[in-house]
């Protein structure tokens, strides 16, 4: 299935199934895109001097970027007729300049759900090549049924 435009159906999902992950490289251009896309101007996300003065080793990527990266994995996976009902995440470690991010997920359960869409539970996370998993997350998504 191509991401985002193909449709995934509830019946076709298996517990333990891995979501198609993707990679982001945190170049300085990506840092600028982070500020542009989020409009978050708190300097700890773009000013290394400020970040170090605050006790961090470098700038770190903001909540909006993190949420967008996790959401992209889910909205690509559920397709245009699916829906992301809930996304929760914990920012336990930081994603920093020059990190290579992997955004990944796995199906942890299925339920019939109340309405016409079926529920799927997903564990997802962001990891980087410097410190491993930085952002564990859990989501509930809704998928259409066949027929």
């Amino acid at each position: 299935m191509t991401t985002a435009t193909g449709q995934r159906y509830w019946e076709d999902v298996a517990d333990g199934e891995e979501l198609a992950g993707y990679e982001l490289r945190l170049t300085w251009t990506k840092m600028v895109q982070q500020v542009s896309g989020s409009q978050d101007f708190y300097p700890v996300h773009h000013d290394p001097g400020f970040a170090r003065e605050a006790g961090h080793s470098d700038i770190f990527y903001n909540t909006s970027f993190t949420q967008a990266a996790l959401s992209r994995l889910l909205t690509d996976w559920v397709g245009p007729a699916g829906w992301v009902r809930r996304l929760g995440f914990q920012m336990r470690k930081m994603n920093m300049p020059d990190d290579r991010l992997q955004v990944k997920g796995v199906v942890t359960g299925k339920a019939e759900g109340d309405g016409p869409l079926g529920e799927v539970s997903i564990d997802l996370w962001i990891e980087n090549d410097r410190v491993g998993i930085t952002t564990p997350a859990e989501a509930t998504v809704l998928l259409p049924r066949r027929g």
């Binding site: 991401t3 985002a4 435009t5 993707y22 982001l24 990506k30 895109q33 982070q34 542009s36 896309g37 989020s38 409009q39 909006s64 970027f65 967008a68 990266a69 992209r72 909205t75 690509d76 245009p80 007729a81």
Partner: peptide, 26 residues
């Protein structure tokens, strides 16, 4: 703003970016 937001995580989802595609969805 949606386009800039998608740019930061390289999200190409046409539901967010393509009015013609989105018009044909629910």
């Amino acid at each position: 703003p949606i386009r800039r937001y998608c740019h930061m995580v390289e999200d190409r989802n046409p539901l967010f970016l393509d009015p013609e595609f989105a018009a044909g969805t629910e």
